[in-house]
């Protein structure tokens, strides 16, 4: 009955047994190019988009929304071109999700104008009476904290200089607070007056939404 009376041997043997599948299906693929393809078309997130992504994570949007379109006819019809591995090269962590209480978001970028998102995030039920999505109006009441934006892009290896990050932030602020911003009226409706000249968490999460799938659409347009 050898092994069953030797706890340390049993533990070591168990460890080896569980490591076989682990090495083959997880550790080896880590170093294979097929799990980590890159494409020149897929650009890292801007500092603002990354801030939006972090808010998406904080709010746990991934608990209801997936970000992978599968290569199935009806799914491509509903959401658009199916997802490719290279699209996710910059994603730490991945946000594919496992549950579709809400629709997939991997091709949401560019599908609607910003104003649609401001209205929808503020009150999903005002657009779809029966939607069960929580309202996120309070995101527009929170000033966006950009104090870590540069360090984030550094850790994530996006390769921006600090000046570039500051520029991205300034540019986006200028865009959404400009008098001729195409979604100005809706943004003003949902944003408290004091914050209209500033960036809010709502602005960032919408910037992130608009990024999702944009690079792939651009790539298709080029081809």
């Amino acid at each position: 009955m050898g092994i069953y009376s030797k706890p340390v041997v049993l533990a070591v043997t168990s460890a080896l047994v569980i490591l076989i599948g682990t090495v083959v299906t997880v550790f080896v693929p880590m170093f294979m190019p097929s799990t980590q393809p890159v494409s020149a078309y897929v650009k890292p997130y801007t500092a603002i988009e990354q801030e939006g992504r972090d808010i998406y994570m904080r709010e746990g949007c991934n608990n209801c929304h997936t970000q992978t379109v599968r290569p199935l006819r009806t799914e491509v019809l509903r959401y658009g071109e199916y997802s490719k591995a290279e699209e996710f090269a910059w994603d730490r962590p991945f946000l594919w999700g496992s549950r579709r209480t809400g629709p997939d978001l991997n091709r949401i970028g560019g599908k609607y104008p910003d104003s649609w998102h401001y209205r929808h995030m503020h009150s999903p039920q005002s657009m779809f009476e029966k939607s069960n999505m929580p309202p996120y109006g309070w995101l527009a009441e929170n000033r966006l904290d950009t104090s870590n934006s540069f360090r984030k892009t550094q850790i994530l290896g996006y390769g921006y200089s600090e000046a570039e990050v500051q520029q991205q932030i300034a540019d986006y602020k200028a865009k959404v607070s400009a008098p001729d911003y195409d979604s100005k009226a809706t943004r003003d409706q949902v944003t408290p007056e004091a914050l209209r000249g500033d960036l809010t968490e709502m602005d960032a999460i919408i910037a992130y939404m608009q990024k999702l799938g944009r690079d792939v659409k651009a790539m298709e347009a080029m081809q």
Binding site: V26, Q36, E87, F88, D91, R92, F94, N148, R151, I155
Partner: peptide
């Protein structure tokens, strides 16, 4: 994961790899 602050970190793995590690 790589810590940013005490309250925030980023996964060491990216994209499809991260998904593979996560579901393993």
């Amino acid at each position: 994961e790589i810590p940013l602050t005490l309250f925030k970190s980023y996964s060491l793995y990216a994209g499809a790899n991260d998904a593979n590690v996560e579901w393993w």
